[in-house]
């Protein structure tokens, strides 16, 4: 005697052994089975006939299982789909229907993820450079006093501006993207990938060029550096600093009169620094001793001011002849110990 409930229980076990284990799915299929059987019995079939037809029409358990497996995303299937989508290959896994997805646009998550992945090294390197390398680089440029072209100065100013306003720039970008994702839903998704691609490429290129520039400039600046070696951070007790181009120095208000090569002049500038600037600096930094520092320790004063004397002990002077009123420039005035020791301590 055919027992429907027992047959259905057997069918369920069959389904389970084929891999369809979810109770909810089995429940739903059983409900279908019972509906179909009821219907056929209503039109004259026996329960057994109806059961057999219905089970056959429901399809092979293995086939059903493989179809259901596509619904439940297993980690492996997800990983495959993820990789294919990132590679720009239309996902095969999610769609069994020809028309399951009517769009061949790259999904938003893939674009953002790719952009992040491509930008991460550049942003990381740039941040590292800005924190650890750039300040040293700036110091090096200043120390070596290399002449930078306008474009290079602009580049450095731009880098500094970028660093100082990093937070605002990122905030602005996030805001812009949010706005685009939110409002421009018609056009933005179509261009998103292109925009991100171009932006990531340009940013990478810019970072590459910038870091290379910093590297090259550092090397250039480093080569300039030895010229000033030893002249940096000199103190008054260093005998190496006890040199001067003058044999006499006299102060009169804001005027400085010197004797250079045996002739008396009014000093106008040293190493292109207006004399007033050097005087102001000395007065502020050396207190009562400022005249002595200026006259006897000009090397240290200039070093402190960030304009060290090169190792060949030359200094550029601009001298005013009080008799004729003419300006005279001496680009490489020699500084000697003999001169310096001859300067009398008239200010003590």
């Amino acid at each position: 005697m055919f027992d429907l409930d027992q047959s259905i229980a057997g069918w369920r076990r069959n389904m389970q052994s084929a891999g369809i284990k979810s109770p909810a799915v089995l429940e739903e299929l059983e409900s279908h089975l019972r509906d179909a059987i009821e219907n056929q019995v209503g039109s004259g079939a026996t329960e057994q006939q109806a059961f057999e037809t219905t089970v056959r029409q429901l399809g092979q358990s293995e086939l059903l299982h493989s179809e259901f497996a596509k619904v439940r995303a297993t980690p492996a299937a997800l990983a495959k789909h993820f990789t294919l989508t990132l590679a720009g290959i239309p996902g095969d896994y999610m769609e069994t229907n020809m028309n399951a997805s009517s769009s061949n646009l790259e999904p938003r998550w893939a674009t953002y993820l790719k952009a992040a992945a491509f930008l991460l090294p550049a942003v990381g390197l740039w941040t590292f450079n800005m924190i650890f390398v750039f300040p040293k680089f700036q110091e090096l440029c200043k120390l070596s006093q290399i002449n930078l072209t306008v474009s290079l100065r602009t580049f450095i100013a731009l880098a500094v501006a970028l660093k100082d306003n990093f937070l605002w720039i990122s905030l602005g970008m996030v805001l812009l993207l949010t706005l685009l994702e939110w409002r421009a839903t018609t056009y933005w998704p179509r261009y998103r990938r292109a925009v991100f691609g171009i932006a990531a490429f340009s940013l990478n290129l810019a970072v590459l060029i910038a870091i290379s520039l910093i590297g090259v400039l550092s090397v250039v600046a480093a080569f300039e550096l030895p010229r000033y070696a030893g002249a940096w951070g000199l103190r008054f007790t260093d005998t190496a600093a006890h040199i001067s181009p003058f044999t006499m120095v006299r102060f009169d208000g804001d005027k400085v009169f010197v004797t250079y090569s045996g002739v008396n002049y009014e000093l106008a500038s040293v190493n292109n620094l207006p004399i007033q600037q050097v005087l102001d600096y000395s007065r502020i930094h050396y207190g009562n001793l400022w005249e002595k520092r200026f006259a006897q320790d000009l090397v240290v004063v200039l070093s402190d001011m960030g304009h060290p004397i090169p190792t060949d002990h030359t200094i550029a002077l601009t001298l005013l002849d009080p008799a004729t009123g003419q300006l005279q420039t001496v680009p490489n005035a020699q500084m000697t110990e003999k001169n310096r020791n001859g300067i009398p301590d008239t200010w003590d």
Binding site: E28, H32, L58, G59, L63, F68, K70, V71, T96
Partner: peptide, 16 residues
């Protein structure tokens, strides 16, 4: 349809 095949389709549509 092969009757059973509708259910995976339904589940997938629900999933989406």
């Amino acid at each position: 349809w092969t009757d059973g095949m509708l259910y995976p389709v339904l589940h997938r549509m629900e999933h989406r």
